[in-house]
């Protein structure tokens, strides 16, 4: 399996046709996956953008560098992985097309931006019109606000782009990506930017799924409000050099750890309540594994911290092990692809 592409959108493109693609449309990142002979490959872009004042020189520079952007009347919109660099340069917050796992209702540019990022990624696959399996979040524990609109809008967007599309629950995609050794039985958790998606599957059949509306963005915003930093900077520190080791070099790390604990505890409490109260619990004859994925689960020590807090809880399900996805950033996209490959004709 190749490493996910973290660089420019143009890099690492697939050059052959693929009948199926997996796409994780997350609050924080959009990850495209495809299978080339025996290898899974990925292309990942930040689901964010920054608007910079228009000048011809800037436009030419962006084109030369292959940086994805949209040209508006008075501004250039920089998309994807390049957005943080420009945001840092201009000392402005990045704008986010999605929030809390769904399209950002306060962002008028959300759909055009996502479409632009996805279209650019798709072109690189040179795949004709593959069927695209996209991940969608589960309903939050308290309701289904926004999910129907989010899913319908994405479907419409892909229909306009002439791509056949199939949706798959995000947590289930994690199960398909990581739990083949238990015949896709276990709990898949995707800790993303806006939501933590949870799915309990039994022999590949999703039994119960939900989301908890506290994830990476919650940590960024909470830390930023305490330290006075921009959320974007908090996110960069969090993703680049934060780890749970009890010895934090800066106050920022210490505060991040506090809100990480808050997020993990909320996730565990949500799972405990949900699994205790649901009537959709399959009969489990033996303990099942939990697999953690997503950018928010990536810092070193996250798995251990999660396990410690979970074991301290009277959790209603017997857990055999808690493991981190082989590649937390791409597990959802890979799972969506695996679902597509399994459904496609041999």
């Amino acid at each position: 399996m190749t490493k996910p592409e973290a660089g420019a959108l143009n890099g690492g493109a697939a050059k052959s046709s693929f009948p199926v693609l997996g796409l994780d449309v997350g609050t924080s990142r959009i990850v495209l996956s495809w299978k080339d002979s025996e290898h899974y490959s990925f292309n990942s872009q930040l689901n964010a953008f920054v608007a910079v004042p228009y000048t011809r020189m800037t436009e030419n520079a962006l084109r030369r560098e292959g940086v994805p952007f949209e040209k508006h009347e008075s501004e250039l919109v920089v998309l994807g992985n390049e957005a943080p660099r420009f945001a840092d340069l201009l000392n402005v917050e990045m704008r986010r097309p999605m929030v809390q796992g769904v399209l950002n209702p306060a962002e008028s540019e959300s759909l055009p931006v996502i479409r632009n990022i996805v279209e650019t990624m798709m072109k690189q696959t040179d795949a004709g019109r593959p069927k695209v399996y996209i991940s969608v979040p589960a309903a939050p524990l308290n309701g289904e606000e926004g999910l129907t609109y989010h899913e319908a809008t994405l479907r419409q967007m892909f229909a306009e782009m002439k791509y056949p599309v199939q949706v798959i629950n995000e947590g289930l995609a994690v199960v398909y990506s990581e739990l083949e050794d238990t015949n896709f039985t276990g709990i898949g958790i995707s800790c993303g930017g806006g939501l933590c998606n949870v799915c309990l599957a039994y022999l590949s059949m999703p039994a119960f799924s939900f989301s908890v509306p506290k994830a990476g963005d919650f940590i960024d915003a909470s830390v930023a409000s305490v330290t006075g930093d921009l959320s974007n900077r908090v996110r960069i520190v969090k993703e680049d050099n934060f780890h749970f080791n009890g010895a934090y070099p800066e106050k920022l790390h210490q505060v991040i750890a506090v809100y990480y604990d808050d997020m993990i505890q909320s996730l565990i409490n949500g799972m405990k309540d949900a699994f205790s109260n649901t009537k959709k619990m399959p009969k489990l004859s033996k303990p099942i594994p939990i697999v953690l994925s997503g950018g928010t689960a990536s810092p070193k020590g996250f798995r251990d911290r999660f396990e410690k807090l979970l074991r301290a809880t009277d959790f209603p399900i017997q857990v055999s092990e808690i493991r981190l996805a082989r590649n937390p950033m791409t597990a959802t996209a890979k799972g969506a692809l695996v679902a597509g490959l399994a459904e496609s004709e041999q």
Partner: peptide
């Protein structure tokens, strides 16, 4: 894994 998932999804659980 893909064949395994295909099997489980085609047996009609």
């Amino acid at each position: 894994p893909v064949q395994r998932l295909r099997y489980l999804r085609t047996v009609g659980i």
